[in-house]
C-alpha cells in the first residue's frame, strides 16, 4: 500500500477522481436511504399529496399487522430454503466439476450459464412449464406420482414453485465461487487424501467444505440478500403474492404498499425493516463464521 499511495501527490486530484462516485452514491444511494428513514416516520394521504409526521406509528402498524408478520415469516422461510437449496445443489455440481478430468471446460460453461438467466425469464418459463393446466412438468408429475397439483390455488405449492425458480437462477453463481474455492485447495492435501485412501464424499465433507468455509459464508450472505430482494420479478410474474398471500414476500408487500396503494410512509417503514433485517442477518452470519470458519 505504501508504495502505491505515494504515486501522485495531490489531494485535489484524488477528490476530483472520486467526484463521480461520490456524487452518484450521494444522490442515488445515501440521500434516498436517509429519506427512506425520514419518510418512514410520516403518513401519506391523498395519493401521496399530503404528509403528516406520525412518529413510529407506521412501524407499530406493521408489527401489529398479521398480514405483514406473515410476510416476514414467509420471507425468512423462503430465504432459508433458497439458501440451503442453492448452496447444496451448487456444492454438488461444483464438486463434480472439480473432480471431472475430461471435458471440464465444456461442463463448466454448461453448468454456470444460469448466472446469465434473467429472473423474469426464469419466472416466465416456469410459469408456463409448471402451469397447472398446460404445463408439461405438472402433467408428468401428476401422471407419475398421482398427485393433484394446482399452485394457482394451493399456497404451499406456489411457494415451492417460486423457491425452485429462485434456486434455479442462483445455482450458476454459487458454482462459480465454489469452484474457485475448490481450486484453491492445496494439491498436496489432495495427494495426502489419496494416499490415505479417503473416500470421495468424506473428502468433500471433512476436507473441502471446511477449507471452503470463507467462500461458503460469503455465499450464504449473498444468497440471503438475493432471496430477500432478488425474487421480486418471480413473484410479480408468477403469483402476484398469491394465492391468498402465500407468496407475499416482504419485497412484494413493499412494492404494493408503495406503488399500488400509494402508502409511501408505510412502504418506507417496510424498507427500513428490510434493511435492518438484512443487515442484522449479515452481521450474525459473519459473526458466526468468525467463530466457526477455518480461515
Amino acid at each position: 500500500m505504501g508504495v502505491h499511495e505515494n504515486t501522485f501527490d495531490s489531494t485535489l486530484g484524488a477528490y476530483l477522481l472520486l467526484l463521480p462516485t461520490l456524487v452518484a452514491i450521494g444522490a442515488f444511494l445515501y440521500y434516498p436511504s436517509l429519506q427512506t428513514l425520514r419518510l418512514s416516520l410520516y403518513k401519506t394521504f391523498l395519493f401521496g399529496q399530503n404528509t403528516r409526521f406520525v412518529g413510529l406509528a407506521n412501524f407499530a402498524e406493521l408489527l401489529s399487522s398479521q398480514t405483514y408478520l406473515g410476510s416476514v415469516g414467509l420471507t425468512f422461510a423462503f430465504a432459508a430454503i433458497v439458501v440451503a437449496g442453492s448452496l447444496a445443489i451448487g456444492l454438488f455440481v461444483a464438486f463434480l466439476l472439480y473432480e471431472v478430468s475430461d471435458g471440464k471446460a465444456a461442463y463448466l460453461v454448461a453448468a454456470i450459464w444460469p448466472y446469465a438467466l434473467p429472473t423474469a425469464v426464469a419466472g416466465t418459463v416456469l410459469l408456463f412449464l409448471a402451469h397447472p393446466s398446460v404445463g408439461i412438468y405438472t402433467h408428468y408429475l401428476e401422471a407419475w406420482f398421482g398427485v393433484e397439483l394446482d399452485w394457482f390455488t394451493v399456497g404451499w405449492q406456489a411457494f415451492a414453485v417460486l423457491a425452485v425458480a429462485a434456486i434455479w437462477k442462483q445455482v450458476g453463481y454459487n458454482v462459480i465461487f465454489m469452484l474457485a474455492a475448490l481450486n484453491n485447495v492445496p494439491e498436496a492435501l489432495n495427494e495426502a487424501c489419496e494416499l490415505d485412501g479417503v473416500e470421495t464424499w468424506r473428502r468433500l465433507v471433512r476436507v473441502y467444505v471446511p477449507l471452503m468455509s470463507p467462500t461458503l459464508v460469503f455465499l450464504v450472505v449473498i444468497n440471503t440478500i438475493y432471496a430477500f430482494f432478488g425474487s421480486f420479478a418471480l413473484i410479480d410474474l408468477m403469483t402476484q403474492g398469491g394465492p391468498t398471500n402465500a407468496t407475499n414476500l416482504m419485497i412484494y408487500q413493499l412494492y404494493r404498499d408503495a406503488f399500488q396503494f400509494n402508502n409511501l410512509g408505510l412502504a418506507s417503514a417496510e424498507s427500513v425493516i428490510l434493511f435492518v433485517l438484512v443487515a442484522g442477518l449479515t452481521y450474525v452470519q459473519l459473526r458466526v463464521s468468525d467463530r466457526y470458519a477455518h480461515y
Binding site: F28, L29, Y31, Q35, L39, F229, I251, S271, V272
Partner: peptide
C-alpha cells in the same frame, strides 16, 4: 452501499 440495494431506498429514489 452493498447494504442498501434499490428496494431499501425505492420510494425516495422514485420521488427524486
Amino acid at each position: 452501499t452493498l447494504m442498501v440495494p434499490v428496494p431499501v431506498r425505492i420510494v425516495p429514489l422514485y420521488e427524486l
